[in-house]
Amino acid sequence: MRGIVRSMATTLGAFVRGPVTREYPEGHRPIPERDRAFPLLLWDFEIDEPYCTGCHACERACPVECMTVLMKDNPAHTSLGGNSSRRKIIDKFWIDYARCMRCNICVEVCNFDAIAMNNTWSGHETSVYDRADLVMDLPQLLAQHKAGAIDEWVAP
């Protein structure tokens, strides 16, 4: 009987203290800086082109082979009259978010700090009706940083 009374008192205490959950779509919990959603590509605002040179380092390091990288000669390279020091630049880039396991290895192996993990809520809310829509192409991967909507964190 004493134990039952104690249990009842415990739940009553919780009843008085009130809820600890919050209403999800209305109120988003603040998200830590290091949060890892899905990887995205960064935009070099100085030269107005992606940082990524398409060096395949991330593609090779990816444990689940969710990336596909194609590079091309950079039309904006200084030798061609542009202002970029990158001889090669990314041509096409796909990341299959459905396969990505968010291990951060691509960020670690990148020599150009061109890729980062999305640490915003929009990076988590990626529900779609068709799995094929989770295969992100280059413009989609660049969009968020290009629009300045992300304060990225790259492991030191």
Binding site: T11, A14, F15, R17, G18, P19, V20, T21, E23
Partner: peptide
């Protein structure tokens, strides 16, 4: 019951 469980319940 939601309140007893420190949840919000239907909202």
């Amino acid at each position: 019951i939601a309140r007893f469980q420190q949840r919000l319940g239907p909202t």
